[in-house]
Structure formats: structure tokens, C-alpha cells
Nucleic acid binder design. Structure first.
Lengths: 165, 165
DNA sequence: CTTGGAGTGTCAACAAAGCTGACGTATTGT
DNA sequence: ACAATACGTCAGCTTTGTTGACACTCCAAG
């Protein structure tokens, strides 16, 4: 089945191993989004609203352009989502202080409440997976995921750590 | 910053670590789908076609119901995708031999060709990530992802290994 | 002080891919 | 004979993405 004569240290790079990794990624991502999706479906929201809320929570006061950059969608697409969140009183859009063209986005109390519900459920699953797998596995998980991002994605991923709050 | 007095072995379960895991998952999944998406966009296909093609390749002769089960979508949704693939001559639908109500799905030569292009690009990224991270990290990656699937997803993930070909 | 460009919002139209509900046909198994 | 299964399809709706066009506010530079 597998040619054992080749360097043993590369057996984890066989096409079969890669395919299992691909399928694991597919099924795990479905699990990853399942819990928040259930909560969102009970309201008039979808995954796009979750992402906006998540990153506004993560970087309060962020601008629309910055959010656009992180989410990688068009402003028309983001605006539709953002508008409903503002109308529903979950997000507040404040005119920028230094540059009045900008809009600084913040979660309202209601927005914070929903964010908590969503991220609690997602964290619960992540925590359980992390605990089951153990610290070394978690480190490996992180290392592989980070290598899977291309340059631009990785830059954005890291940028979230720079000025967290 | 972090309360070092609590058990050190649980530091990897802090909310901050979990959030980083969540964000890593989000950005990595975007990288994971980026390459096939580019190929698909140049044709009239989308991610849904890719998934169908992938699992037909994985389990040749699979039935529509089985594919429905794995993909977790409605038959109307799958049928729309499957119909275009059959019309375009990438997938063949053969009347079942033992049960003539069933349809056994196979890739045609053209279907195999597209599947190869798609999975080559996806495997290339996965291989590069695996190689960068090393075997132990890959094992951890797999362990965490598998723990992230809930029961039903995990069952389906494993079922692909049972009768691979 | 005008003018170009950046940041934002919005209208319109469209596409991909999910959903529900309903119905029809072929086939199997009781 | 009849109920259930497997499949296909019509119609209509939703979410979330896309282009393209246009307007407004505001900053910065000439």
C-alpha cells in the first residue's frame, strides 16, 4: 500500500494523509459553525452577522474599511449586514474623532449580550476539543492552521494581536 | 495579565487561547478553500460542485441518498448541482444494479480531470502546511479537528475510511 | 481655497447555494 | 395490492456574496 522504503519521516505527507486532513478540515468546520448557526437562525441573523459582531467585539472602535479588509467582502455586502445590526440596536456607529469621515464601530449592550451567547457556545466546543486533545495537540493544531493561511490572511490574523484593545 | 497562580497545565484553555483558536480556524478555512475557489470561479462552478465531486471521487458508485447524508443538504440543493455536473459530462449517473431505484454516481474522465486539478491545488497547500508544521503538529491538528466534530459529523468522517474504494 | 481622493452609504441587478413544500414516477418489499 | 423508498423537479423564498454607478462628507495637498 505505502512504499515503506522511502524516508519514514515523510509518511505523514502521503496523499492519503493529506486527504484525511482535508476531510477533517471540512467536517470540523461544520462543527465549528454549527452552534452559533443554531442561535443565529432563531433570530433573523446569519453567519455574516456573527463575523461582523465578532470582529467589532475584538477590536472596538474599528472602522468600516478595516472591517472590510478583515472580512474580505465588498462594502455593499458588509453594509447590508451592518445596517440591520445598527437598526436593531446591536451596533453603534460613531463619527470618527480624528478623521470625521470614518465611522467607529462599537457593540451596544444588546450587541455585547448576543456576542456573549454566540462566542460562549463556540468557545465551549473549542474548549472541549482542546481539553480532549491536550496542550501539545493544541499547539500543533495552531501551527498547522497558521501555515495554512496565505500571506495576506496570516498578516490579518496576526494584526488582531497587535492592538487587541 | 494571566493569573499564573492557577494550574499551569490549563493555561491553554483560557478564553484568550480559545479565541485565538477560533480565529485561526476562520482564517485557515479561508485559505483552505481559496485555491479550489479560484479554479472553480473560472468555470461556472462553485464550492458546492467541488464538494460533490470530491465525495463522488472518494466513494465511486455512491448513491444520491448517501451523498445527501454526507453533505448535509437537501436533495433539491444537491440536485441542482448534480444536474449541471451530469449535463456537463463530469458525472455519470447509472441506474443501480441491485436496486434499480438507486443511482450510482461516478466521475467521467472529464470529471476525474477536474477533480485532479482541484485536489492537487488543495493538497499542495495542505502538504506545505503539514511539512512546515511537522509530524507531531499534524497529529495534534488531526486530534483537535476530530474532537471538534459532534457525534454525527464524526461518524460520517470515519465512515469514509470504512469502505474507501 | 480649490480640488483630488479617501471613507462611507446606498440603489439596482444579479448569482450561488442553502431552505420549505408539494408532487410525480419508478421500483421494492411486505 | 399497497405502502414505503429513491429520485427528480417545480415554485418560491432567504442569505450572502458580486458589479457598477452615484452621492456625500471630509481630509490633505497643491
Amino acid at each position: 500500500m505505502v512504499d515503506v522504503t522511502r524516508s519514514e519521516s515523510l509518511l505523514y505527507l502521503t496523499d492519503e494523509q493529506l486527504r484525511q486532513g482535508i476531510e477533517a478540515m471540512y467536517f470540523a468546520y461544520r462543527g465549528f459553525t454549527a452552534d452559533p448557526d443554531r442561535i443565529l437562525a432563531s433570530m433573523a441573523y446569519g453567519r455574516a452577522h456573527h463575523r461582523a459582531i465578532h470582529f467589532i467585539k475584538r477590536a472596538p472602535g474599528t472602522t468600516v474599511t478595516n472591517l472590510l479588509d478583515i472580512l474580505g467582502v465588498t462594502k455593499q455586502s458588509l453594509n447590508r449586514v451592518l445596517r440591520t445590526l445598527i437598526e436593531d440596536g446591536l451596533v453603534e456607529s460613531r463619527v470618527g474623532t480624528t478623521d470625521r469621515r470614518e465611522r467607529n464601530l462599537h457593540l451596544t449592550e444588546a450587541g455585547e449580550a448576543l456576542e456573549n451567547r454566540l462566542s460562549d457556545s463556540q468557545r465551549a466546543r473549542m474548549r472541549s476539543a482542546f481539553r480532549d486533545a491536550g496542550p501539545e495537540a493544541v499547539a500543533g493544531f495552531r501551527r498547522v492552521l497558521e501555515s495554512m493561511m496565505d500571506g495576506e490572511l496570516h498578516r490579518q490574523y496576526l494584526s488582531l494581536r497587535e492592538a487587541p484593545k
